[in-house]
Design a protein around this nucleic acid. Structure first.
Lengths: 159, 159
DNA sequence: GTCATACTACTCGGATAAGAACTGTCCGAGTGGGGTAGG
DNA sequence: CCTACCCCACTCGGACAGTTCTTATCCGAGTAGTATGAC
């Protein structure tokens, strides 16, 4: 899985602690974790294309959450970065084997494909059941100082 | 995910329908699905290294199942091909962020990592709950002619 | 003092390289079987 | 006829290229704010 997923989730989480309507540039988001700024920009662009963030160019511009954290699931973020296609993609090798294959959709009929899809659905269901708001609440409960520190860092420091 | 996973599962399934102790060469396994023989050989080697298949060189050699289909889970096969590391690998970017990080294991402490791990465990649990024997039984129940046809193909035909 | 205007600095966005991983290919080490020569 | 030996064909196993995807970088289009000059 792409490393950008980790960056994206942490970034979305950090954005929940900023003042509503406040935009943060990709460069500062990257500096927070000492990551390459241009590549972070690329990941945030993917989130913007997916409708998770909104971007505004120019001075005082940057990225901010496009909707409430309660409406952003981890599945949304993963799909935005990794793409919509599933990890196990059935190439229908049965079609090139012996036997008749006219008009058969092995993506649905092949039992191997079904078994793999079942596992992948369990993964997706678990991701879809967790929202950015859930993560935010967990952190606020277990690490109460983090929200204030994060907000202060983005408000004051430059490096 | 690597395409070889699909090849590996189908190949293990086909091996369950052969005479006990009968070995099949990588070339014939590949020919069954019109796949590149050398690359199929590579995948079967990975299964042999993982202890799922046993290989015997020389004439009359080839691959055969190393243990009962009931004892081979889809998780075993996927791990043999893809490797043991998990799909989402926490790079601990929190370590490079502000705050103290001495002696903290963010792979366990980071809540983002925990959430992703939870989803991955659901995936692995689903895969570990399905064995090659389960697949074999399903096919035998829904496509009763397949086992005989497969055995016949490997016993007779060359191409 | 007020307003319009031009300029500058800043940000995203997409186009462009470098690196790694997956995919595909090739040849050598080792083995088993069959042919052959001798008893 | 039986047996021992040698040769050969066959198979796995690992080492070697080609291609695609991920990672990383750079520069241009567009915007907001500001300074400046005219009225």
């Amino acid at each position: 899985m792409s490393e950008g997923v980790e960056w994206a989730i942490h970034s979305c989480l950090n954005l929940t602690w900023l003042e509503p309507g406040e935009a943060v540039t990709a460069a500062r988001m990257a500096a927070y974790y000492s990551l390459p700024a241009a590549y972070m920009n690329k990941q945030l662009q993917a989130l913007a294309r997916a409708g998770i963030l909104t971007s505004t160019p120019g001075p005082r511009g940057g990225f901010r959450l496009a909707r409430a954290p309660e409406d952003i699931t981890l599945m949304d973020v993963v799909t935005a970065i990794e793409g919509p296609e599933e990890a196990f993609r059935c190439e229908e090798i049965l079609r090139h084997g012996p036997g008749e294959h006219e008009g058969v959709d092995y993506r649905r009929g092949c039992y191997v494909s079904q078994a793999m899809r079942r596992a992948e659905l369990a993964w997706r269901r678990e991701l879809a059941g967790q929202t950015i708001a859930d993560l935010r609440d967990t952190v606020e409960r277990r690490r109460p100082s983090v929200p204030g520190e994060t907000r202060a860092w983005f408000a004051n420091l430059r490096t």
